[in-house]
Design a protein around this nucleic acid. Structure first.
Lengths: 240, 240, 240, 240
DNA sequence: GATGAATGAGAATTCATTCAT
DNA sequence: GATGAATGAATTCTCATTCAT
């Protein structure tokens, strides 16, 4: 054992690779035990290095978590803007953003719990890149709402901040049990329900002059859904 | 000095009073420093007892927090049901529940942060009385929605869980910065906006215009069939 | 062994006694190994308690050293002022102070090394009680000099600070090797020599012979004038 | 960026130059942070090399400090013996040595603190070249005293070691606050005061047969000062 | 009922030094 | 000659909880 350890000792890796290995190990340990319960000793063992080596790459345990989460976030957000471009129609675009958000929480509940319950309450969170990445995502979602307003689908007096809070708050609340491994949820169904509720909640109402607006709106939405189906990428995702 | 301390020491209090004193002290310390950072030593000092005494009343520090929060919750929820009885109209009743929730978060951000960020993530939370008290509050809110449905104001296919998640998720998201002392919000304005959005989102559409809805409905059903043909899985989910 | 340790475990002592025991142990360990090399673990073992207990009495290892040194200092200085009262004559009184200082260094070289080499260089030293205790001792010594001036034994232009620096600096320099256990010295002989040198250095000159000093003084003033002409700046300094 | 770093890396320097660069960097880091707080990593960065390179030139961090200090010492002491030759008269020669010592401490307090507080307490100090260089300086100073004895100016029973301790101890004590950046001092004024005190303390006293010795001594000193003024080098320094 | 002395098992972090490349 | 990745032992301080008095 000791011999093996010794042998291992001089397994030199380029900086980037070692860093990646540590981050993989850290992610796994953090996710399975939570930040506090994860000890640097355990992470080091999982990474196949000694504790001291960790500190050559990350100044503190906290920083290590932050880097791990940043990496995760970047991977997640890297292409959603591109994907969004392929989706047409306000309802579909809105649903795409909501569904995407829910899907991430569904696919990686441990990591999301880590972010939501451990990292986000930290004071430094608001100065972190994660916060900014998150803001970008949020803004993209609100941009869709703004398009809806500009296009006349939505009322003009939409309280954007509240809408944002409703969408992301609902997602968080809805996935709560799942993040704790105490329940399940369907990203699809939830995305539909949230999107519908928000959509109808923001919809421009029939002025006296648009008496039949309600039904027309419904028709419009049906058409939009068809448009959405016509978008190849959307379809792929849907069937995934 | 020593004499005074000695004198103090003999201040025997009835069990209830001592307990109350400890809880007051604990609440103050927990709120100002957070659960982890609050030490039993500090709480003991604030309560004017020694650490050992704490353990005569509360088996663990965790239990102490739970008791403190329970007390807070009970005080908050004690009369809202009575108050709700005095409010008429679905919109008003809904707004009352939302506003009440937001007001508590506005008035006592420290305690709410404690609940939301510290206590709720605990595994034992779902078995705690706080959870059940919270459920009762939640159910009361949903009861208002159900009344709306029963009264014909709201659609019949309202996804109640999602509505609940939107309301409470929105409240949480909206007050996030305030709980961290990094921002402010208006309970009134937020309650209005959330209520409006939810209300409109759930509203049954076009009663008077119902007459001309028939063909449109047929049309929409046709569209839905088309969608179903295009993405079989989607349909399955939707009907789930 | 473990059984014995367990048995020991509940050996409860009043606060003062336990504190005293820890300080005795700490003093011994600090003295024999130096501050840095002394580990809290070792001190705890020597004191017969666990490490945690140390921290119930002293907030940090540094504080522990400070308290240990303070106690030592107080014991040393407690009665020297009384003792000084029993000594008559400037030379004797001066010698007493110097001898006392040297004697302490002779008797407790480890502790003195600790103070001189470890504690004194710390930034907090000047705000410590030790510093003030030391000042008091220093002042008492200078008071003797002042008496000598007042009594006409010493010149009136004695540079007190420099005298202080010479006395205590000499003591430190002279005992240097001894504190390092690399040499010996005689407090008596050293006290004599230092006292004599200081005494003669401060002595007022030629009272009886004063009569013939007049012309010589004139001569010297002339020389000083010459000097002043040669190096104007120098003169300025000197007269400052 | 990376390219530049690579380019830099190949900057092969002759052994001496690299060594010199490292020593300059080390000196700066040691002086500003102290020995313990200075990390080899920081020194390496300051020197523009990697840590490993340091160890190609200096076996340990301790050795590096020693070398740095040795270099400093040699530069300081290189010409003082020559300079001393240009100074005439016991008083002046003595003052020159003291003033020189004080001036170094005034000019380079960081380095002196390093020597006095960090390096000198080390066990290896007495075996280091610095110790011997220092001894040489000390001996030169005592040589001046010996000249004074030989010339009849000083008593014959002068305790040389004590005189040495008084001079250098006084210097150290007097500069103490300055080395800690907590105070100032004037090398000129201090040199005058110390020299005078030592001089008078060692002065041969009027035997009965030399009743007027006191005044003559004063005259002698005045003359000596004149001699000092006649020495060109001395004068330069003085007026500097 | 109250005290308060004592526990004890960590856990994160530091950094001089080595040596394969 | 220079690199720079990796080591690894060592250390202070924390604090909820216990239990003899």
């Amino acid at each position: 054992m000791k011999g093996a350890a010794r042998a291992r000792r001089r397994e030199r890796l380029p900086r980037d690779e070692r860093m990646a290995e540590i981050m993989v190990a850290a992610r796994q340990v953090f996710c399975s035990k939570g930040y506090e319960a994860a000890s640097t000793a355990e992470i080091a063992v999982a990474a196949g290095v000694v504790e001291g080596t960790l500190y050559r790459y990350f100044p503190t345990k906290r920083d290590l978590l932050i880097k791990v989460v940043e990496e995760f976030y970047e991977a997640i957000l890297s292409d959603y803007e591109a994907q969004l471009k392929g989706v047409r129609g306000t309802w579909n675009r809105l649903r795409f953003m909501i569904w995407k958000h829910l899907s991430v929480m569904h696919a990686d509940p441990d990591m999301c719990r880590l972010i939501v319950h451990e990292l986000r309450p930290w004071p430094e969170y608001r100065r972190s890149r994660i916060f900014r990445l998150n803001q970008r995502y949020t803004q993209s979602t609100l941009a869709v709402i703004r398009e809806g307003i500009a296009g006349g689908e939505f009322r003009e007096d939409v309280p954007l901040r509240i809408v944002r809070d409703m969408i992301f708050g609902a997602a968080e609340h809805h996935t709560w049990a799942h993040l704790r491994k105490e329940g399940e949820f369907s990203p699809d169904a939830a995305a539909d329900a949230i999107t519908n509720l928000i959509y109808q909640g923001l919809e421009r109402r029939g002025h006296p002059a648009r008496s039949s607006g309600v039904e027309l709106n419904r028709l419009e939405r049906a058409v939009q859904r068809l448009e959405g189906l016509a978008t190849p990428r959307r379809r792929k995702r849907r069937s995934a």
